[in-house]
Design a protein around this nucleic acid. Structure first.
Lengths: 335, 335
DNA sequence: TGCCATCGTCGATGCGCTTCGACACTGACC
DNA sequence: GGTCAGTGTCGAAGCGCATCGACGATGGCA
């Protein structure tokens, strides 16, 4: 193993000088800097992470708590994780993965073992039991999602409330007067998952204020559940002309089921989805959608985390405005 | 921060004794053990990861290199990652996420900074350029996938060659005489991704030995690509009665395209997929499939890694036998 | 009773790094 | 020529832990 001493020796300087060259915390003469940098390169020196963490109480590691359930959208989670890793690396940090399954104790463990410098937490619930503990942790914490009482925690997410409203607005402006929301699986609502309830709120508010008839149903993502859900909605209102789908996993099943029923999209029924753009474009009928900007959220989450680490202590709540893209799955209802 | 000294003081013993209680590397009297354990619990002591790593040259961290491309199956990658994290935690280790995008330098960095104790590498290519470097690293390395020359590295994966053969065997035994393989996107083959070429090899061998007419095509996962691919295959052989799909992402598009063409599954054409069971069950017609045991592979990968860390130095190659489940999408072709 | 082996505990040392105070040297200025 | 502020470098200390050799206590056996 190459140590800082080896480098110092090779460069003919003291170890501390090498350290200062690397950290830039003191001024170094150009000559010395060049000498040291050459030795570092020549020896292939990388500082020992543990030693560095011990001496500086900084690990250069960010911990990310991800949900590993299958009732959430895996593609979105993955995209988020991907962008978070990339963003973290841009700040010279690494990403440690924790699962929600390990529970709150895992957060304690990471904090008090000094395994990571900060925590990013996904799949936040409206009354998330982890919030008080996270507050007590005195590590920077960024939530992906917004609980009812973020207290002093930073949050970032798509503005799902606005997204819910935007979907309704789009359909209403096309002339739809009776629409329905197909939401995430019942379990997601039961947990009080932040984005689900926020979207529903936006949907409800908008349908009320625009005087649009509306129903909403959670929906598991088996084919039967989708089918039953549609049965139910069409029974409740046979004149239904618009569907808002806040559940990417059911889209394929939903679309083929509609076709089975002889309902054409968008001639007989309009469909607007909340899903990543790539997914919207991938269907037989390209879907009008509100994008889930997982990548953007991941980047922002890391940015916020790094700001906190850099000393910006005031927590922020960043809600990304929804972006609706009109494609081929929505149209005005026939008279 | 609670240190080992605090615990020692609280328990009235020396710090080293606390250390031995935790590690179990020397015998401790029951009385002392209880005393120490109580203090640990009372103070909420967690050893400082950096200090531990420095003193013992063990980080208790496993690094996992994941591909973040979207042309691979995200769900499978996610499932793998999930099971790997869980398995690692069972061994009291954490998982650090690296992306393939960072290139080989990232592996060097992790190794020489002593950030992780071992490396697990996904998305292995047949002639993977990382192999020589990994060998030089003198960390335990486990590949998920099998390169042409694993040299001294451990590998684990589904036996895709056997899987390819199994698909053919199933269709052939049902009486199909002309089948086609719809594979991953061209880019996947171009990279020489290990599982794609292995599957293709199994497919080719089996069709040859069973004297089945066969075509194979890579296929991107846009709807147009799927459609073009089908056009092409049906033009090449209008009597095609069986489809092997080694590309989960195209399944929804493929199935609806077949329906559009008036081809019923399985009456007119049989479809067998290589995908996770959950995905196979989720379609309108439940799909006969060869399962991708991502969870099992993840667990095994971690097991192998831990064995290496425990001193088992001989590299192993574990190929998991394919498991074919017959569902509703395959049947004998009509005479 | 005295000896020795065994068991349980302790103290000291060092892992590789950061950081702080100290210090030598330079050039500017009176 | 002497002083002083500033610049660049050094040495030492200590971060929290694991580990090793040493050592006291205990009990068995003669």
């Amino acid at each position: 193993m190459v140590t800082i001493n080896d480098v110092a020796h090779a460069a003919g300087v003291a170890p501390s000088t090498v350290s200062y060259v690397i950290s830039g915390k003191r001024s170094i003469s150009p000559k010395t800097r060049r000498l040291v940098e050459d030795s570092i390169r020549k020896l292939g020196y990388h500082p020992h992470a543990g030693a560095r963490a011990l001496a500086s109480s900084k690990t250069n590691v960010l911990a990310l708590v991800v949900p590993l359930r299958t009732d959430l959208n895996v593609a979105v989670v993955m995209e988020f994780v991907a962008s978070a890793v990339t963003a973290a690396r841009a700040y010279d940090h690494d990403l440690l993965l924790l699962t929600k399954d390990e529970g709150p104790a895992a957060l304690q463990r990471v904090a008090s073992s000094a395994i990571a410098d900060a925590l990013m937490v996904m799949d936040v619930e409206t009354a998330d039991p982890r919030v008080p503990m996270l507050l007590a942790l005195d590590l920077p914490v960024v939530l992906i999602g917004v609980p009812d009482h973020p207290a002093g925690l930073s949050c970032v997410d798509l503005d799902f409330t606005a997204a819910g409203s935007a979907c309704v607005a789009h359909l209403a402006e096309l002339g739809h007067r009776s629409i329905a929301l197909i939401g995430p699986s019942p379990a997601v609502y039961r947990r009080g998952t932040s984005y689900a309830t926020r979207f529903l709120r936006g949907f409800d508010e908008a349908t009320k204020s625009r005087d649009v008839r509306a129903e909403s149903r959670p929906c598991a993502h088996s084919y039967e559940a989708v089918s039953a859900c549609l049965d139910d909605l069409l029974a409740a209102d046979p004149d239904l002309t618009g569907l808002v789908v806040h559940n990417e996993a059911v889209l394929p099943g939903l679309l083929s089921d509609l076709r089975h029923r002889g309902l054409r999209v968008p001639e007989d029924i309009s469909v607007i989805a909340v899903c990543p753009d790539s997914m919207a474009e991938q269907h037989v009928v390209a879907l009008t959608n509100v994008a889930i900007p997982a990548e953007e959220v991941g980047t922002q989450a890391v940015d916020m985390t790094m700001r906190r680490l850099a000393g910006h202590t005031t927590p922020e709540v960043r809600l990304l405005g929804p972006r609706l893209t009109r494609r081929d799955s929505t149209a005005s209802p026939r008279a």
